[in-house]
Design a protein around this nucleic acid. Structure first.
Lengths: 208, 208
DNA sequence: GAGTAATCAAACTATAAGTACGATAAATGA
DNA sequence: TCATTTATCGTACTTATAGTTTGATTACTC
């Protein structure tokens, strides 16, 4: 078989396995899904699964990478869709919120939460795509705000990239976890609360 | 045996086990510590461990609760130590940073990160002490800032409690995880970066 | 000293990740 | 065509660890 076809076939198999695992992870949860489950559902023998992936964690990480690409794509749209800095800001926030709601587990992972190391093996370290591409993305976004003189003059773009990222992801994750308490004690739904938080946070970035 | 003494003895045993587990968790890591390890180190038989705790997770949660109390105590001091709002703010931030550096795992837990559910049993749900006591603490802190007219007039205290909490804990956690990249690409150490972030974040709260 | 409660040691169960290995089937290539 | 290689399969095995069971032992109480 030509190296060309062979590689395509390998990719096809990997994709199959990932697709199956994705579905199982989303319906049953990652921990509750066993390698036998994946093998059965993907219609491969367990041994073959281990030909394509080193471990369950390896499969999981591949999925996270996939979703990372999706998220980055969506965020890019938010930024390009509008020329107004403030508008882009809220669009990006909404985009992250939607993503978190759809894939809370993956969101947490690509935000850098501790890996699921159920494995007996050493963890598979993935090169931090998020840290690179996303960095550039947010940096571009902030530069736009700088150029349009929306952003405070004393803001230093480089550290602010991480600052914005970490604060917003913290806000989103906690909002999700505490949404019930939010409802009960503040009678404010999650969306309202997030709107308020994003608006307040925006004030730390812009001139007044 | 009197109920009085009996209860004290039970508490004594629980404490012993917790102390041993704490040490092991901190040196070997939580996942790497087995129940047999704990039993051996605490000098009880495994069966007895299970008399006092339902599961490994139960032990872990008890420890988290302990540390929660410690953290709350420390934060209280920060607030009472100074009458100045800004000063209190930075003291609290430092306090959280120190705590995170000492006990990253516990910090993540009491910040609400997903539980370590290695167990086959249903997770032990702990009543969210953090969510109550800490809430009150931060609320008091914000009220101080409100009273001294430091805080922006359009700030609504209730949701701001959660806002401040979640943003700051996000910032701290990401700073820890990305501290190497911080050093390399921004040549800024973690402390400097955090200082910058806390200062910037402060601007979202106060009048200018 | 009989009865009760706490503790123990050790074997056992269950579950799941990852491995080993021989069998089978399918593509390749002389 | 037939031999060789390659992918896949299935099954059984290994290992690790949480949690359970049991029956013995110790110690405390009345």
């Amino acid at each position: 078989m030509g190296a060309r076809k062979k590689e395509a076939l390998e990719q096809f198999n990997r994709d199959n396995i990932i697709t199956a695992a994705k579905e199982l992870f989303e319906t049953k949860g990652v921990e509750q899904t066993t390698m036998d489950d994946i093998a059965k559902y993907a219609d491969y023998s367990k041994s073959t699964i281990y030909v394509y992936f080193k471990s369950k964690e390896d499969i999981y990480n591949s999925i996270v990478e996939d979703y990372t690409d999706v998220l980055i794509g969506e965020l890019e749209v938010c930024i390009q869709e509008s020329t107004d800095f403030e508008d882009s800001y809220y669009k990006m926030c909404d985009c992250l919120v939607n993503f978190e709601e759809k894939y809370p587990k993956y969101y947490a992972s690509l935000m850098g939460e501790e890996k699921t190391t159920n494995s007996r093996k050493k963890p598979v370290l993935k090169d931090d795509k998020v840290g690179k591409e996303l960095n550039e993305l947010i940096k571009g976004f902030l530069e736009k705000g700088m150029a349009s003189r929306k952003i405070r003059a004393d803001i230093d773009i480089q550290p602010t990239v991480l600052y914005v990222w970490s604060a917003i992801s913290g806000i989103i994750q906690v909002a999700e976890r505490k949404k019930d308490e939010l409802d009960e004690s503040l009678n404010m739904n999650k969306r309202e609360y997030l709107r308020y938080s994003f608006r307040t946070f925006y004030e730390s970035l812009v001139r007044r």
